[in-house]
């Protein structure tokens, strides 16, 4: 927090390089959130810029009652929701269920592929993650890509800690089941 306090003070004092540092530090987080919610490829980067402009304008009002990452993440989350014209509740209600996701795994009926022949784990997991319901994708990416805690994710999304945990567990369970269905276990475990 002290590090961030210094950074915030420097940005507020008009130091341009400090704002550049802040953008560098948090752009990945902002991109993860915006890219998971906004589907329009052309507009995503503009929205990420909007988020940082809002951060720039609102930094004076940041009270430090949560982590800076949570505060910026929340701005990114709300800006993205505003952009797609959805309320928070809509996002979490209409984006499919795990049951539907598992049905799609069981229903496709194809034989296990060879995991080892596909060298890029990243590519395989990306494909599987993209099949998850939206809310689970957001939480997986915040937890595993941005190393945020349940509390921070809860601050950003406004969901209770327990719900965040539950979405995350369900997502990982679904990923594991999907990988097991598609690939022989000895392959994806290697």
């Amino acid at each position: 927090m002290t590090e961030n306090k210094n950074l915030i003070d420097r940005v507020l004092s008009g130091e341009k390089i400090a704002f550049a540092e802040l953008i560098e530090q948090y752009k990945k987080l902002v991109f993860h959130i915006v890219f998971r919610i906004v589907k329009d490829i052309e507009e995503r980067e503009d929205i990420c810029q909007d988020v940082f402009i809002k951060v720039y304008q609102g930094l004076k009002g940041f009270k430090g009652d949560c982590k800076l990452s949570s505060w910026i993440g929340k701005i990114a989350y709300n800006t993205s929701l505003n952009h797609i014209g959805k309320r928070h509740d809509d996002l979490w209600e209409d984006m499919g269920s795990r049951e539907g996701f598992l049905e799609s795994i069981n229903g496709n009926g194809h034989q296990p592929d060879h995991f080892a022949t596909q060298r890029n784990y990243g590519e395989i997991l990306r494909a599987e993650i993209s099949q998850l319901p939206e809310q689970q994708k957001i939480i997986v990416s915040l937890y595993h890509f941005d190393d945020l805690s349940y509390k921070e994710i809860s601050d950003i999304t406004g969901l209770p800690d327990g719900t965040v945990k539950s979405y995350l567990f369900r997502a990982r369970q679904a990923l594991k089941e999907r990988l097991e269905k598609k690939y022989k276990s000895e392959e994806w475990l290697n």
Binding site: E128, F145, L175
Partner: peptide, 13 residues
């Protein structure tokens, strides 16, 4: 699975 998930980060800035 946990150790491999991070490889799936596909964000290009």
């Amino acid at each position: 699975l946990f150790s491999k998930i991070e490889y799936a980060d596909d964000i290009e800035i």
